[in-house]
Simulated scan of single mutants.
Amino acid sequence: MTAPTIRRSFVDTGAGAIHVASAGAGFPVLLLHQTPRSWDEFRDVLPLLGRDFRAIAIDTAGFGDSCKLPPAEHSIERWAAIAFEVLDALGVDGAAVVGHHTGAVTALEMAASQPARVKALVLSSCPYNDAARRSAHAGKRTIDDVQARADGAHLTELWSRRQPYYPAGDIGLMERFIADAIKAGPMASHGHVVVRNYLMEQRISLVSAPTLVLQAGSDPHAAPYAGRVAAAIGGSVLHTIAEGMVPMPDQLPELFARAVADFLSVHTA
């Protein structure tokens, strides 16, 4: 089967223009990226899911080619509301929502805030952000917090901070990360703070959609939370991709897309 073409466009929201990349037709599946990535995180996943679904990846406000907002105006709740505005603009009422890392937290809020519209949910590498985690991380430097320097040394520093969590020797994945981090600017670091500020423990019990919790087995930042996230959502399914790392969707697009498609084929029929 020939993979569908990726189409790119912009839609207007109350926050500004949001960049959209989509592929395929059928039941809509919204894909939300991690910090500080963009739709490019799902560049290889889109045509795979697009064989059976209308796969839609967006750049979260502040990232990629989407509108820029002052850091203080960002929150998980606002990102979720903007995502619904995008679906409205695309004529989509109900959709499955798939999120990775930061995107998983936004996807969870979408399911909690408008459960009738989120028909199925996939939480990939989702942290469990409660008071204990907020306290543990409060005031600490985020992984992508580097001071810009005229000689460009901050990019080497950023590369070295991230590289241990990427496949050894995979220059291409690291270059894609760096390109998105440069576009994000201050949001590369602040996006992690937005996640840190989210009161997940007050919202997760509101999730009623059929849920798949995807655990990247080789992601030390998120893998420890997978069981707790799954336990907090009644009836959820936990699936582990053992070799998955922080960049799992673009590291292992075939395995990622297959896990998502297998789950959604049952719960969006």
Score class of each variant (00 low, 15 high):
Ala222Ile: 01
Gln163Asn: 08
Gly227Cys: 06
Ala96Gly: 09
Ser208Gly: 10
Trp159Val: 03
Gly94Phe: 04
Ala116Val: 12
Val146Tyr: 03
Ala132Pro: 11
Phe177Ala: 04
Ala216Phe: 02
Pro210Asn: 11
Pro210Met: 11
Leu90Tyr: 06
Asp144Arg: 00
Ile178Pro: 05
Gly185Tyr: 11
Ala184Arg: 00
Phe177Arg: 01
Glu201Gln: 15
Asp93Met: 07
Ser208Trp: 03
Pro210Gly: 12
Arg203Ile: 13
Ser125Gln: 05
Ser205Trp: 14
Gln147Cys: 03
Pro164Arg: 09
Arg203Asp: 15
Thr211Glu: 00
Lys140Tyr: 02
Ala116Asn: 14
Ala148Tyr: 04
His154Cys: 03
Met187Asn: 09
Asp93Ser: 09
Ser189Pro: 04
Ala107Val: 05
Gly191Ile: 10
Leu108Tyr: 00
Ile143Arg: 14
Arg203Lys: 15
Gly169Tyr: 09
Pro220Phe: 02
Ala216Arg: 00
Glu109Phe: 09
Ala223Gly: 02
Thr156Met: 10
Arg176Gln: 11
Asn129Ile: 13
Gly103Ile: 10
Ala111Ser: 14
Asp145Asn: 02
Arg134Ser: 15
Asn197Trp: 04
Gly227Asp: 05
Ala104His: 01
Met110Val: 01
His137Glu: 08
Thr156Leu: 11
Trp159Ser: 10
Leu173Asn: 05
Val118Phe: 13
Ala107Cys: 13
Ile182Lys: 13
His154Arg: 03
Met174Cys: 14
Ala104Thr: 00
Val213Tyr: 00
Ala153Phe: 13
Ile171Ser: 11
Gln215Trp: 01
Ser135Tyr: 15
Ser135Glu: 14
Thr142Lys: 14
Ala216Thr: 01
Ile182Trp: 06
Arg176Ile: 09
Gly191Cys: 09
Gln215Val: 02
Leu108Ser: 00
Ser189Thr: 06
Ile204Pro: 01
Tyr166Pro: 01
Arg133Lys: 07
Gly94Ala: 15
Gly91Val: 09
Arg196Ile: 04
Tyr225Cys: 10
Lys119Val: 11
Ala150Lys: 09
Asp170Thr: 12
Ala138Pro: 08
Arg176Lys: 09
Arg117Asn: 12
Ala111Val: 09
Val98Arg: 05
Lys183Ile: 03
Val207Pro: 02
Ala209Ser: 08
Asn129Gln: 14
Asp130Pro: 07
Gly227Ala: 08
Ala223Pro: 02
Val194Asp: 04
Leu121Ile: 03
Thr106Val: 15
Ile204Lys: 02
Gly94Gln: 14
Met187Val: 07
Tyr165Glu: 07
His221Gln: 06
Val105Leu: 03
Leu155Arg: 13
Asn197Glu: 10
Glu157Ala: 05
Glu201Ser: 11
Asp170Val: 08
Ser218Tyr: 01
Ser218Glu: 07
Pro167Val: 05
Ala150Leu: 10
Leu108Met: 06
Arg149Ile: 00
Ala136His: 15
Ser125Met: 02
Ser124Asn: 01
Met174Gln: 14
Gly172Met: 10
Ala138Asp: 11
Thr142Gln: 15
Ala111Lys: 07
Ala112Gln: 14
Thr142Phe: 12
